[in-house]
Simulated scan of single mutants.
Amino acid sequence: MINVLVVDDDALVRWGLADLIGTDPGLLLVAEAADGLEAVEQATRHQVDVALVDVRMPRVDGIAAVRLLRAQPSPPRIVMLTTFDLDEYVYDALAAGADGFLLKDTEPRDILRAVHVVAVGHGMLHPSAARRLIDRYHRTARPDARAARKRLARLTPRETQVLARLAEGDTNAEIATALGMRESTVKAHVSRILTALEASNRVQAALLARDAGFPR
């Protein structure tokens, strides 16, 4: 069972997400919150596996909430909810430690799938809208590519191949198929990549790869 926290200042959105989560027997809504501060309070009271967090909220917004939730002893996986015109906010949230994001007009079945995917440690870079959004912001943010390339130099050639697929949003199973490896071996490579790059999750590793202009 995956315990879910819904965080949004719009009561109608919270209720809609709560009803949606209730349709999936593998998910359990354990709490709701109207802003980031309340989200942290709820996360300390309940075991939360995945938090669906809005970007724009009063008191403590979604980006600040990500940092606070990630600082918890057992931090939940975090998926941001946003509209497509908040590029810089979404990027900042991912850089702060969110595991991905969904647009608010995402199909209900895809929201449910996203919760399951994130719960097992996968990022949310593969939806085309999400990838276009990150690419667009990277073109204007001018990241420190030299520092990023220096960190990527720590990887072995095989790890670099795995990172290239990871940066494209592939799951472990897809990477294993593409590179002719066992999924358990891919998982081990991903773990070493995160350690070498000092990244907290797959999304941050993929962002670092893109900062370095990789893959080309």
Rank of each mutant, 00 (worst) to 15 (best):
L103E: 02
L69T: 07
L17C: 10
D99A: 11
R67C: 05
G62R: 08
A98D: 06
A199F: 02
H189M: 04
V79P: 00
R165V: 04
D10C: 04
V190L: 15
L163Y: 07
D105N: 14
R154V: 09
R158D: 14
Q204L: 08
P76T: 09
Q161W: 04
Q72M: 15
I134Q: 05
D61L: 12
K104G: 14
M80T: 06
R132I: 04
A147W: 07
L20K: 02
A51I: 10
A164N: 08
L28V: 15
K104C: 08
V30Q: 06
A141M: 11
A34Q: 11
P108F: 02
L207F: 04
A18Y: 06
M80W: 07
H116P: 06
A93F: 09
I78E: 00
D19Q: 15
I21P: 04
L5E: 03
Y89G: 02
T44D: 02
F101K: 01
A148T: 04
S74K: 11
N3G: 05
Q72P: 02
F101L: 07
I63V: 15
T177I: 06
V162N: 01
L194Q: 13
L17S: 05
R136Q: 11
H189G: 01
L112M: 13
L27D: 03
D92S: 15
L37G: 14
N3T: 15
P127D: 12
V66P: 03
T106S: 15
A205V: 06
P58F: 05
D144R: 10
V48I: 15
A34Y: 00
P58G: 09
L12D: 09
E174N: 10
G213V: 12
A119R: 03
P73C: 10
L94D: 08
L28E: 15
L12G: 04
V203F: 04
L94V: 11
S200F: 00
